[in-house]
């Protein structure tokens, strides 16, 4: 017993020591950079860009990260990509941004989890003369230097139009969406809904499944009960779409069009296997890459556009092989 306690306490002490060493090392390095740092002298200061994402632990964000890191390599600047453990961890994202402001990075590139909640932090960055660029998700903040992304609304429209192109007027469709209060999902759903309704389709239900695969499956199972004649389902991310697709498959239904959003590796696999019909891909790689490139320009004092489009595409069985190959290249597989 005593032995266990001893070993444990030793482990704790070692971890603490290790952490404090790393911390110290970092700090001194940063202090040096900030010493060289004067606001007017852009040329001599090493450019250091912080990219703060909604999370780091999904394929989508990993691709954004890959794009950002590739840009960093090409331009020879220092880029750090950060993010909380979950997209819902808004407070965590705020803390990360605050830390970067204190570190006096040259520019902040942010994909805000909750745009309205992030504005106060953006203001702090502006006060500290740190330029802020938004990627992926836009925010209603007048000092932003640029928004780099596709616009989720536009992405939703692409998905909606795709579904409409496969169906007849008056056909029933359902929408499964992510957590309420997440602007990204609001926009995707609104875009898809508008496109489908404009095409004369009947959107019979919008139900939440919290971006979770299991819940997406449950919700689809239930929706199939009420609307056995539904012709298509639009999901505001791929995880839910994969769940919904599984529910459809298990219910023995055929020909229901299932469209996800994000173009994640799992979704591509499923499209290839002839299960998922399609996924709206936002080119996360470009979001990361263009974001860092724009940030570097800003840090160097160059002008950039207030709106940079990164393109949206619909991945279906026809182009999935190409998309897969691009993805593998980005993620460094094969």
């Amino acid at each position: 017993m005593k032995k266990v306690t001893k070993i444990l306490s030793l482990m704790v002490i070692l971890t603490m020591l290790a952490v404090s060493f790393i911390g110290c090392g970092k700090k001194t390095a940063e202090q040096q950079t900030s010493n060289n740092n004067t606001a007017s002298n852009n040329e001599t200061k090493p450019i250091k860009i912080a990219v703060v994402l909604k999370a780091l632990n999904s394929d989508y964000w990993k691709i954004v990260q890959a794009g950002a890191m590739d840009a960093a390599k090409q331009l020879g600047v220092e880029v750090e990509v950060l993010g909380p453990n979950a997209e819902t961890d808004i407070a965590g994202q705020t803390s990360i941004m605050e830390d970067q402001i204190i570190k006096k990075v040259s520019a902040l590139v942010v994909a805000p989890s909750q745009p309205s909640a992030a504005i106060a932090t953006f203001d702090k960055a502006a006060e500290a003369n740190i330029p802020v660029l938004l990627i992926d998700t836009n925010a209603n903040w007048d000092k932003k230097l640029s928004f780099i992304g596709t616009g989720n609304y536009a992405g939703g429209e692409v998905g909606g139009k795709f579904i409409a192109s496969k169906l007849q007027k008056g056909d029933k469709v359902v929408i499964i969406r992510g957590a309420l209060g997440d602007g990204t999902h609001d926009e995707r759903v609104n875009g898809a809904k508008k496109a489908m309704e404009d095409a004369g389709l009947q959107v019979v239900a919008v139900q939440p499944a919290n971006s979770d695969r299991n819940m997406g499956m449950s919700v689809m199972e239930n929706l199939l009960q009420t609307y056995p004649d539904v012709k298509a389902v639009f999901c505001s991310n791929d995880e839910m779409a994969l769940g919904a697709q599984r529910a459809i498959m298990q219910a023995g239904k055929k020909g229901i069009i299932t469209v996800g959003f994000d173009g994640s590796p799992d979704a591509l696999k499923s499209i290839k296997a002839g299960e998922l019909t399609g996924s709206v891909a936002q080119s996360p790689y470009n979001i990361g890459k263009f974001g860092v490139e724009a940030a570097v320009k800003v840090a160097k004092g160059e002008k950039i556009d207030a709106r940079i489009d990164t393109g949206t595409s619909m991945i279906t069985a026809e182009n999935v092989d190409q998309a897969q190959a691009d993805l593998d290249k980005i993620l460094g597989k094969k």
Binding site: R177, L180, V204, A205, V206, Q207, P208, S218, V219, N222, L223, Q225, T226
Partner: peptide, 12 residues
């Protein structure tokens, strides 16, 4: 949860 889905109760 099932019932709320069936009834199409809005997400919020």
């Amino acid at each position: 949860r099932n019932g709320l889905n069936l009834l199409g109760v809005s997400a919020d």
